[in-house]
């Protein structure tokens, strides 16, 4: 057992890399020198485009892939010890089940794999069926279930043994809005119960709502890490202003220093590049009997952040500075 020297850290990776050898091309790094620390009770969002290395990282954490180099520690126990995963619950992207089993049989099977005896399995089923509302479907074979119900069973499996750390790979993937709402509420309740949650997602609004910290992966490398405020550009990028009863000459004047976005009935919407100009113009409009309907400062969203990261990547690539992905032979 290796001690990390800090009991607050539930999950730690150090210089974690996964390389796929190739005979035809140069070896590919799916993940390169990834070092992260997830603290107790934290919700950590793992972000990145398709193929960035999120699932590869998650699979290494869960013992499915063998790291090429570097290490993973769960509660201070190194990944090579399978019992390091005693405090880990894993929900794969699109969880797969033994279709011929019922939810009750499935949960009991995973209880046995966690090392529980018959009585403990029964008690665990009672706890999870209560928590995830599975009692009504306990004896129906999983093959008959919808995507949302399957996700619930996936959560039940992840929560068997009440693990401290939950690793969720795209938990909202493929769900309808109601299903997403349920899962979001479940993650919030798990967070409130003190669980540490590490999850990857493409649904940026969910990440913004749920995560204390995020890490952004690009071509296998961690390019940004911190709170959402730290990762995103927090200065005001533009201001959207909606005014009513604005006179025609003022509309013409505003159009010179702002973008006229939309005009309908006696409303007009402008986008100002700076909040100072927006303030001045709104003051002038109010002095001329206009009414302020909306004044919305715009900051960078995670979506815009991704677009910015993509542009940076493409520029780096064009300049021949593709410093990652390919291992120099």
């Amino acid at each position: 057992m290796l001690s990390m020297g800090d009991e607050r850290i539930v999950l730690k990776t150090k210089d974690l890399s996964k390389r796929y050898p190739s005979l035809k091309r140069k070896d590919m790094f799916a993940v390169k020198d990834l070092s992260i620390e997830i603290n107790k009770g934290e919700v950590f969002g793992f972000l990145g485009r398709n193929g960035a290395g999120k699932t590869t990282t998650i699979k290494m954490i869960c013992g499915l892939l063998i790291p090429t180099s570097g290490g993973i520690w769960i509660n201070g126990i190194e990944w090579k010890n399978p019992y390091s995963r005693r405090s880990l619950g894993y929900l794969p992207e699109q969880p797969y089940f033994y279709e011929y089993l019922t939810p009750k049989e499935t949960v009991k099977f995973y209880c046995q794999l966690k090392g529980m005896n018959k009585r403990e399995c029964e008690r665990e089923w009672g706890r999870l069926s209560e928590m995830l509302d599975l009692k009504d479907i306990s004896d129906i074979r999983i093959r008959n279930f919808s995507k949302g119900m399957r996700q619930k069973i996936g959560f039940a499996i992840a929560l068997v043994g009440n693990p401290e750390l939950l690793v969720l790979d795209e938990p909202m993937s493929g769900l309808d809005p109601i299903g997403r709402k349920h899962i979001r509420e479940l993650i919030i309740s798990l967070k409130n119960s003190g669980k540490t949650i590490f999850f990857s997602s493409h649904v940026l609004s969910d990440v913004e709502q749920l995560c204390d910290r995020v890490g952004v992966l690009t071509r296998g490398r961690l390019v940004a890490e911190g709170s959402i405020k730290e990762v995103l550009h927090q200065e005001i990028r533009s201001v959207d202003v909606v005014l009513r009863y604005l006179e025609e000459w003022l509309i013409n004047e505003f159009s010179a220093s702002a973008q006229l976005v939309h005009r309908w009935e006696d409303y007009v919407c402008f986008k100002f590049d700076s909040s100072e100009i927006a303030n001045l113009m709104v003051k002038k409009a109010l002095e001329n009997s206009a009414k302020l309907v909306e004044f919305v400062p715009q900051k960078e969203s995670l979506e815009e952040f991704f677009v910015r990261m993509q542009i940076t990547e493409e520029e780096e690539s064009k300049r021949g500075k593709l410093y990652y992905s390919k291992l120099e032979e």
Partner: peptide, 15 residues
């Protein structure tokens, strides 16, 4: 192939 192995190998059990 059916990926049922994911939730099994991630359990605290030696392979």
């Amino acid at each position: 192939d059916k990926r049922t192995i994911y939730t099994i190998i991630s359990q605290p059990m030696p392979r």
